[in-house]
Amino acid sequence: MTVAAGTVPRPERSIDIYRRALTWLETHLPGGWSVSSDRPRSPAAPNRLLVTAPDGDSVSFAIVASKGVLSGDVARIAAELSDSDRGFVCAHYLSEPVRRQLDGHGISYADATGNVSLVADRPAIWVRNRGADADPWRGPGRPSGVLTGEPSERVVRALADHAGQMSVPELIKLSGASTGAAYRVVEVLFERELVSRLPRGPITEVRWEHMLRAWAADRKPCPTRGFAAPAGLDELRARLAAADGALGYAVTGIGATDYATPVVLEVYADDVDAFAAALELRPVDGGADVVVATPWSSVVFDRMQHRDGLHCVAPSHAYADLVAGPFRHPDAAEYLLTTMTTDETSWRRAVRRAR
């Protein structure tokens, strides 16, 4: 059994990619064997996978979750694993050449189409399944050089939020993106003339306004759900301020600016159901005064600002949200852009270098 195009949505978040891959792995594990993992903050994937034999003996794998893995990434993944560690790569799809290279490096893997390989010497286990031979979600003529996915979000936000020359290794540390992904995103930005870079040297200029607009246009909108606040938005804001960030949220859109008092509160939430339940929000099909989005990446919670006691996305993220997507508001976007351009030092941080 494999995934057929159009039958199953393509997993986008790291946690969803991991869960889909894990489902395939669990399906093909021998009887009595089990898997478990640590629990990081969604939407990130876990860091470690533990596979346990019927007698209780277990083996641990370092999880590498990525939307796409290219042949050139495998050597890097292998090099980043310690000599004593085992790797388990998860992706929405792993091509046959990539699977061969992973096998050659002794790295286990599973993708969302059912391609699975899990190998360990102690306890001894060998699991194998063949899934799709082609990416079922890749449409004809799919464009390259676009700023989509978590690595793009992390790199674009880090470049926008920091000022000064920056080497790619420094960018990798600031963004949290993997080495290979960061280099690929920088190449796209350079080709689209959104950044300037010295040959084999640092990034010397970031055209952050154009970069944020390009990212906003390319990225896939987050899924949203509408709710009603029974006691009104003023009471809801007071409860959010009192929660002091314990609910895992970030206000975006007009509410993250001083453009105007919003009539609809637009929010990202780490767990939409838990957020709504804690605030006693009521789901509605129309006329919502609270719109809650599920973020593709935890980058929405990076470098947040605080306004009137509320946790809000960084100005760079608010601007991108106002430019395009479900929180679009052109007038507020231009207002915020003027504020950001007038005083970049109020929101862009200087790159700190180790001494």
Rank of each mutant, 00 (worst) to 15 (best):
A177P: 00
H162V: 04
L189T: 02
E193S: 13
D161L: 08
L194V: 06
L174V: 10
G176N: 08
Q165R: 12
V188F: 09
V195D: 01
S178C: 10
G176T: 00
V186C: 09
G164K: 06
E193V: 05
F190V: 02
R192W: 02
I172E: 00
V156N: 02
L189V: 02
R192N: 08
S175T: 00
R192V: 09
A163W: 10
F190Y: 13
T179N: 14
A158V: 01
V195C: 08
S196A: 14
D161I: 00
V186K: 01
A158I: 00
Q165M: 13
G176Q: 05
S175R: 01
F190S: 14
Y183L: 11
R184M: 07
A177C: 09
E191W: 11
S178I: 06
L194G: 03
A163I: 12
R184K: 07
T179C: 13
D161K: 00
A163P: 01
V168I: 15
E191F: 12
Y183T: 06
A163Y: 10
P169E: 12
Q165W: 11
K173C: 08
S196E: 14
R192S: 09
Q165E: 15
S167F: 06
H162M: 01
G164L: 09
M166F: 00
Q165I: 07
L159T: 05
R157S: 14
R184P: 04
S175A: 11
S178G: 15
A177Y: 05
V168T: 08
S175V: 00
V168N: 03
K173T: 13
V168Q: 03
G164C: 09
G180W: 06
L174M: 06
L174I: 08
E193I: 06
R157Q: 12
E170D: 13
T179R: 15
K173H: 13
L189G: 03
E193Y: 11
M166Y: 00
V195S: 00
V185N: 07
F190N: 12
A181I: 01
V185L: 04
F190Q: 14
A160Q: 00
L174P: 01
S196F: 10
L174R: 03
A163Q: 15
S178W: 08
V195Q: 04
L189P: 10
S178V: 03
S196G: 13
V195L: 03
A158C: 04
M166E: 09
G180I: 10
E193N: 13
S196Y: 09
R184F: 10
L174A: 13
L194M: 08
R157W: 10
E170C: 06
M166Q: 10
L194H: 01
S167K: 02
A181V: 07
K173Y: 11
V156F: 07
F190K: 13
L171H: 02
A181M: 02
K173D: 14
A182V: 01
E193R: 14
S167W: 02
V188D: 02
A177S: 12
V156M: 06
S167L: 09
D161Y: 09
V168C: 05
Q165T: 13
V188M: 06
V168E: 04
T179Y: 11
G164W: 08
V156D: 04
K173R: 15
A160Y: 08
E187L: 12
L159R: 07
S175E: 01
V156R: 06
I172L: 10
M166W: 00
